[in-house]
Write a protein that binds this DNA or RNA. Structure first.
Lengths: 366, 366
DNA sequence: GTGAAAGCGCTAACAT
DNA sequence: ATGTTAGCGCTTTCAC
C-alpha cells in the first residue's frame, strides 16, 4: 500500500496563493468569500482529490461527527434492523457510527463508555444491559448527548425510544382470549430487563380485563446465560425443555404466549413430540415476527416490532438533544407493535396451511 | 447534561508541577520516568478521572485506533455474527469499529471510502458489493490497510478471508448425490457476486464428478432488487414463486440445492402446496444453517458457515497488514463450511420428525 | 529523569 | 473579501 501523503488545506492554499483560512471557509461554504475564489478553491480541491481531515476538525470542535451505538447483540434481528436504520439516518445527517457490542455484560458497558469518551463522539444511542444505570451516568456528566434505545433507565432522565412491549404483551394475550383461550401460559426468557417485565405486565392486564385468573406457574421462564458471547440471541432448544415440562401438567393451557419467535420453535417441537396440534390443541402466539415465522407449520401469529421507526426516532431524538432545543416530541417515546394474525391461533381453518408470507430475513455467506 | 470540562494532560501536569510531556510519558508507560513520578501521575489521573483524548492522539499519529467495517447488510445473520466477532477481536486489540452499511450499492461504497479516509481509520475490513473494484482502490493509494471479507476483488491484491463457497456448493450437492439424487436443481439469488458463482461452480463440479448431467434450467434464479434498503436479506416469497414455476415441469428433480435457508422456506411451502413430501418426493439442502432450520418440518440439511472464524481471521489479517510483516499465513484464506445433515435429505426415517436442534437466533424487542 | 518547543490539520477570533 | 494569530490535546524531537 503506497503512502501518497494526503493533501491538506495548506497544500491548496499554497497552490493558490491564499491563506489556509480562506481555503477552509471556501470549502466549508461559509460566506464572506468571493465567488471566483470559491470556485478556484473548489476546483483545486477537486483536482488534488482533497479529503478533509475530520480528526483535526473534531479536535478543534471538541466533538466528532460520530455517534456511538451501543448494542447488546447484533444477531438479534431486531437489533440488526435497528443498526441498519440508525446507520442510514445518521449518515444522512453526516454522522458516522461507532458500534459497540456489550453482550449483556455490565463490564463491557463500562468499557464502552470509556471508549465513547475517548473518541469524543457527538452523541450516543444505547441499549443498556439494565444491570445498573451507573456506567451511563458519566455520559451526562461530561455532556455527551445520549438516547436510550428499547430499554429505559428512568433514573437517568435521558431521552428514550422503544417498543411498547406492555401493549405487545397485551395484544398478544387479548388476541388469544378473543380466539377462545381461557387458560394461558407465558413463556419468557429469564433475564431481568424491562422489555420482558413489560410484556408480562401486558399479559396480566389482558387477563385481568377478561376476568381470567393467572394461577401460579402461568409465567414460565427459559433460562439464559448472561455475559456469554452468544452469536445467537435465543435458544429454541432451551424453550423446548421448558415446554416439555409444561406439557406434563395435568391440565394444559389453551394458549401459550411466548416472548420471542425462537421460543415458539421449541414449543412447536415439544407439541409435535407430544402429538398435540397447533392451534387446535393449543394456540401459540410469538413475538418479534421473525421472517421465518410466516413459513412455519402452521404459520405463527406473532407481534411485529416497529424496528425502522424506533431506529429513526432514536436518531431524531439524539439530533434534537444535540440541537438543544426543547422538542415538540415527548422525551420518552413508546412505539406500538402490531399483531400479525396467522394460523397458529386460527381454529377455523385448522389443518390446512396457506397464507402468503411477505417478509423475510436469513443467513448465507452472501 | 452538564458540561464539566474534561481533564487533560495539562491539568494533571499543572496539579503536579510537571511538564505535559512527563505526564504523557508516565501515562503511556514509556520508560525514562522515575517510578515515584509515574505513581504520582497515575494517582492524579485516577483521582480526576482522566480520559485520554484519542482524537488529539490520532491527529498527531496520523491514524486512529479505529477499524472501518463495511458491510452490505447487517440483517443477514452471517454478517451479524461477523460484526460481533470482529467487534470483539478488534476491541481486544484496542480498536474501535466504525460501521458502514452499503446495502449492495456502489454509490454507498464510494461514500464509505470517503468517510473512512476522513476519519483516518487505522484499517478497514470490507465486504464489497462487487459491482466494481474502483471505490476501494483509493484505500491502497492513500495507504489504508484493507482486508476483504467474504467477497474477494482479486485485482486489488488485498488480503482476503471468506467462506469456501465452492466447497460448500460441492458438499451440498455431493451429499444429495450420496443420498440417491440424480437430477438436481439449484435455486440461487440473482446477484452477480462471487459467493453465488462459487457455490454454483461447486455444484457443477460435484455433478461432473458423479457423471451427472446439468441440463438447461438446472440453475434457477430468484430475482433480487439491488440498491434497496432491505432490512431482510432474502425473500422466501420470491423463492416460493420460482419454486412453483419449477414444480410445473414435466420431470421434477430429486433434490434442490438452495443458496440460503430462506429460499428453502419458500421451497418447502411450494412443495407443501403441491402436496409433495420432503425428503421422499424431493430432497432439500439449504445453505447458511439458520438457527430456525433445525426446527423446520422436516429439519433442514444445510451448510454451516464459519462466521466466527472468518471474523477473527479478518482482524488478524488486518493486524498483520498493519504490522507490515510478511505473515506466515497465506494472504488469501478460504475457510471450509461444514455440512449439517438433517431430515430433509434423509429418506430412511421419512415421515417422522425428530433431531434435537442445538443452535438458534431470532427477533424480539429484548 | 524531566522540560521546552514544535507541530499534526483544522476552525475561530480578530485584524485589515 | 482575505490574512494573521492562536489554539484544540497530544506526541515527538531535542535540550538539559
Amino acid at each position: 500500500m503506497a503512502g501518497a501523503r494526503r493533501h491538506t488545506l495548506r497544500d491548496i492554499a499554497a497552490a493558490l496563493n491564499l491563506s489556509v483560512n480562506t481555503v477552509s471557509r471556501a470549502l466549508s461554504g461559509k460566506d464572506g468569500i468571493g465567488e471566483k475564489t470559491r470556485a478556484r478553491v473548489r476546483a483545486e480541491a477537486e483536482r488534488v482529490g482533497y479529503v478533509p481531515n475530520s480528526v483535526a476538525r473534531s479536535l478543534v470542535l471538541g466533538s466528532a461527527m460520530t455517534f456511538g451505538l451501543v448494542i447488546t447483540n447484533p444477531s438479534n434481528p431486531f437489533y440488526a434492523q435497528l443498526i441498519s436504520s440508525i446507520e442510514l439516518r445518521a449518515r444522512t445527517h453526516g454522522y458516522s457510527l461507532l458500534l459497540m457490542v456489550t453482550d449483556e455484560s455490565e463490564e463491557n458497558e463500562t468499557r464502552a463508555v470509556e471508549s465513547l469518551l475517548r473518541s469524543s463522539v457527538g452523541g450516543s444511542i444505547v441499549v443498556p444491559v439494565q444491570a445498573s444505570a451507573d456506567p451511563w451516568r458519566r455520559l451526562s456528566t461530561v455532556g455527551v448527548p445520549t438516547v436510550l434505545l428499547n430499554r429505559d433507565l428512568p433514573d437517568l432522565g435521558y431521552r428514550f425510544v422503544g417498543t411498547d412491549n406492555e401493549l405487545g404483551g397485551y395484544r398478544a394475550t387479548e388476541h388469544a382470549i378473543s380466539r377462545g383461550a381461557r387458560s394461558i401460559v407465558v413463556l419468557e426468557e429469564d433475564l431481568p430487563i424491562t422489555t420482558i417485565a413489560d410484556r408480562i405486565a401486558g399479559f396480566r392486564r389482558a387477563m385481568a380485563e377478561a376476568g381470567l385468573s393467572v394461577p401460579r406457574g402461568s409465567i414460565m421462564r427459559v433460562p439464559t446465560r448472561r455475559h456469554e458471547q452468544a452469536a445467537l440471541p435465543w435458544q429454541p432448544q432451551q424453550a423446548y425443555q421448558v415446554a416439555r415440562r409444561m406439557l406434563r401438567r395435568a391440565r394444559l393451557p389453551d394458549a401459550v404466549v411466548v416472548g420471542n419467535d425462537y421460543f415458539a420453535l421449541g414449543l412447536y417441537r415439544a407439541l409435535e413430540v407430544r402429538g398435540l396440534k397447533v392451534p387446535d390443541d393449543m394456540m401459540v402466539i410469538g413475538y418479534g415476527d421473525h421472517p421465518y415465522s410466516a413459513f412455519l407449520s402452521p404459520p405463527l401469529t406473532t407481534v411485529r416490532l416497529p424496528a425502522e421507526e424506533v431506529g429513526n426516532i432514536a436518531v431524531d431524538l439524539l439530533l434534537e438533544e444535540i440541537a438543544g432545543g426543547r422538542s415538540a416530541r415527548p422525551l420518552k417515546q413508546l412505539i406500538a407493535p402490531t399483531l400479525v394474525e396467522r394460523e397458529s391461533t386460527d381454529r377455523t381453518t385448522s389443518g390446512r396451511t396457506s397464507s402468503a408470507a411477505k417478509n423475510d430475513s436469513g443467513m448465507t455467506s452472501r
